[in-house]
Write a protein that binds this DNA or RNA. Structure first.
Length: 294
DNA sequence: AATGGAGCCAACCGCCATGGC
DNA sequence: GGCCATGGCGGTTGGCTCCAT
């Protein structure tokens, strides 16, 4: 089936490369095989030359994307685990929509996958709990009531496949992100067509514990070099848990030191608390928007 | 059984950064 | 410094599938 934009593009040539004869849309198993065979044999010194050399009528960008998002042998498949979900939430809290950066902390996952998972699942979970997905803070009451009735919230029937027991108790947890239902319940990858079936050659890479890659365990300080745009951490950065910080989001205020003193159920929370604590002492753009005061 | 709405996700678009000339 | 090719990335789209009615 050809969409209307495809018809138009055929008339004017492909936008990124000007080619007139390029396939678009879903990849066929034959195309996958050609690309896989070519890349595994020759690598990809230049993506723009790959289509021609591999005998594909695709643009280089499309080949690159297909390789990165689907054919790469080190891709992990299947549902996101609770740990992966937690990692996404926690890293997103620091970096925002830097999907490529977030994906780097999830071996075998692609930025596209992370982005889709965020938009289709995590975002809704946060909204359903009255949390602003972009800031991770509790939304003002009027916004909370608005989101609870808008289309961002899945119907109850859909919701049960996303979260089985949504709970949010402000009296015990300032931010209940860490207390989201640990039973990640995204549906297993649906097999829509033969091209979505796992490749025989795929390698499953075990997920290590969340943010460990961000930490220099020898000194127990964050390895900020792994986080783009974040300055090196100062050794004498005060731990956040001993500081008082109040974050103001419209009419909602929280004493943030609750966040890292709350007993957590995952080892990640302690790691992240350390990272986040240190980050509070440095110039850190993503936090500027939160209006931190000490 | 049919159908329409909603969600998921692969793939594309457009912009930006980088490097070579 | 300007131009071009290329790669990378975030946002968006549209088709497929599921599920409630």
């Amino acid at each position: 089936m050809r969409g209307k934009w495809e018809m138009k593009r055929d008339e004017m040539g492909h936008r990124c490369c000007g080619k007139h004869k390029v396939n678009r849309g879903l990849w066929s198993p034959e195309e996958d095989e050609k690309l896989l065979r070519y890349i595994t044999t020759h690598g990809h010194p230049s993506w723009s030359s790959v289509p021609k050399l591999a005998g594909l009528e695709r643009c280089g960008k499309s080949c690159r994307l297909r390789w990165i998002n689907y054919l790469r042998p080190d891709l992990k498949r299947g549902s996101f685990t609770a740990e992966e979900e937690q990692t996404i939430i926690d890293v997103h809290r620091i970096l925002g929509n830097k999907w490529a950066q977030i994906a780097k902390h999830l071996p075998g996952r692609t930025d596209n996958e992370v982005k889709n998972f965020w938009n289709s699942c995590i975002k809704k979970k946060l909204l359903s709990q009255g949390l602003d997905p972009s800031t991770h803070n509790l939304m003002p009451s009027h916004k909370r009531s608005a989101t609870s009735s808008n289309n961002n919230i899945p119907k109850p029937s859909k919701m049960k496949s996303i979260m089985t027991n949504p709970t949010f108790d402000l009296s015990t947890t300032a931010f209940s992100i860490t207390n989201l239902n640990p039973h990640t319940s995204t549906k297993p990858n649906k097999v829509k067509s033969p091209i979505r079936t796992p490749l025989p050659s795929q390698t499953i890479i075990p997920i290590n514990n969340t943010m460990s890659s961000l930490l220099d365990y020898e000194n127990m300080i964050p390895s900020w070099s792994d986080v783009d745009g974040v300055a090196p951490i100062h050794e004498e950065a005060p731990m956040f848990s001993s500081e008082k910080a109040v974050v103001g989001v419209d009419d909602d205020y929280f004493n943030m030191d609750i966040l890292f003193n709350t007993p957590s159920t995952t080892t990640f929370d302690h790691d992240f608390a350390s990272i986040f604590s240190s980050a509070m002492s440095i110039d850190f753009n993503p936090m500027d928007d939160l209006g931190w005061t000490f």
